[in-house]
Design a protein around this nucleic acid. Sequence first.
DNA 1: CTGAAAGCGCTTACAG
DNA 2: CTGAAAGCGCTTACAG
Lengths: 353, 353
Amino acid sequence: MTTTSEIAKKLGISRGTVSRVINNHPNVKEETRQRVLEALKASNYIPNEAARSLVMKREFKIAVIVFSEPKFFWRQVELGVNSAHNELKPQGVKVEYFVTDILNPGEQLELLKDLAKQGFDAIAIAPNNPLLLVEQIDAISASNIPVVIINVDIPTANRLCYVGCNYMHSGSLACEILAKCMNYNGNVVILTLQDQVIAIEQRVTGFRHELSNYRDIHIDQVCRFNRLAEGVYDEVYSILKNNPEINGIYVSFGALEQTAQAVIDANLVNKVKVVGYDLSETIYDYMKKGAITATVCHEPFNQGYFAVKILHNYLRSGITPNSTILYTKLEAIFAANAGYYLNEHKYIELLHL
Amino acid sequence: MTTTSEIAKKLGISRGTVSRVINNHPNVKEETRQRVLEALKASNYIPNEAARSLVMKREFKIAVIVFSEPKFFWRQVELGVNSAHNELKPQGVKVEYFVTDILNPGEQLELLKDLAKQGFDAIAIAPNNPLLLVEQIDAISASNIPVVIINVDIPTANRLCYVGCNYMHSGSLACEILAKCMNYNGNVVILTLQDQVIAIEQRVTGFRHELSNYRDIHIDQVCRFNRLAEGVYDEVYSILKNNPEINGIYVSFGALEQTAQAVIDANLVNKVKVVGYDLSETIYDYMKKGAITATVCHEPFNQGYFAVKILHNYLRSGITPNSTILYTKLEAIFAANAGYYLNEHKYIELLHL
DNA sequence: CTGAAAGCGCTTACAG
DNA sequence: CTGAAAGCGCTTACAG
């Protein structure tokens, strides 16, 4: 490991000048600069980050914005954020976590404006209503505050990167699992949203696309609900009672719990296969009862963890992710492995201390 | 951010003494120690890692020992080891990776003896033949070199911790998936080892235990092979040809590829469901063809990554994992999400720089 | 344009 | 048992 002192001595100049060259400071004679640059290259110099960060001692403030539902999902994101925060605290990084109301998307816009003024150095946001935020995200990026988008991308916005799943794929995976558990045969009901939420629409597109590989599975009907999943239980229960040919339900949004209860009450556990998304204690319980066949997750913990780490890397060293899209893994979860995912944070804690 | 100086000033003592307490050095009056400890807690002190690593500048040498087969599995472990190595290089950590012959378990024993003499500060090992190593691992631990065991535990050995899966659970998960894909009905063949390998036996135990929940699935036969999976193709092919009632195969050890090929050649793709372990490009290809229904993995990358990180944490700060057993997640992998797991290391690289 | 010097927060011989 | 001091590698006012 070469040091600035060694370079300086070899060249017969001071460490300060070497440092100035390294950091691209002005006011260095061009000839000196060249000599230093050469010596640096020749000796394969790598700056000691510990020394550098010790003397620079920059404090970074990072904001993370999510919205309120489903609580258990965002809770796992928060645990990831906390984990990154704990890891970076010794380097003087502050992280603040904000939760906005899912029913009031405008809140995120206001918050975004506020935070830029409050002197945050970087922002991670999970868009509630993506379209609403594009302009403000661009403005923030333009003012040199990097933005990472998590959970649902806004491809048109000027962001450092997106961290989250590929929704098309998450639809395919759900379909593959459901089709296999239906033994490639039968009739499926799709539960989805009535309002246009792009991510959910992409899931359904992915599901339908994958379903075209299975000729003996047919879509019986598509049912639409609002984001709070109101009426799901009644509707599913009545459909199941009236359509005995149904043996599969694809739950494309957060309505697994209601669906599972309807399956139980209709006395169709194990007869009707149910696949959906995300994982909570309640969902786990339903899985153990057999009322949910499988659920697909997309690394909620890591969405929070990575967002903070990426922003910090950028602030500290100007490192930009190699790709503007960082897809999280799609996780297939069954009763037998759900416990590991539910307790992921505990497992990670074993390491971060 | 509180510093040691501030604590010292508040208590009217020197920074050195504060530092001694923080680092658990002996030779501090008990009363002083208590006062410092209190002040530390009260001010929420977090050591500045940059300063610390700048001044400590210790070089650690860590050895990782695995064995040779299956190559693709250990390759992923190696990527995890490399990732941790890259992360810790700037802190002066050297990691060496050793691969021993799977057919010569004694090699690991010799290597272990050698390494202790060669001045390695810590060792991670994936036991080829666990029983052979207990004594030597105890000896190494006794000489103050921490040992982490990966992949297959040796509960009786004196190790810092075990990082790897719970084999019983990995059997249950495979069974749950297989049973669901067989629509809870039919006849299954179990492929396993002829020699007593505890981990594999545990898998089969877990599988059988879970299977007892499914009354309409029967075990048709259990076939045994050697660790190199010799003869699997022929045997499976002939079984499938002669037993049309079979609709499921549980591959409890590394023989997925041969099994899948036999299923294809017997013209039973999608008819016979196959579930096994681990993931390679070849296995992925078979999944895409439908010849493998699902495969179960247990975080090979993280086994390598965590082992190194845990050892480094211990060497640097004396931090012992909260638990002597750190179970990796059990990952259910289908055609639609296999790509994410196969390319996990690329995804991680986005972060580590 | 450049050097000498201070200092980031911490640990650890060295004295006492 | 404890304090004073040196020093890890680097950056950056401050003089000149």
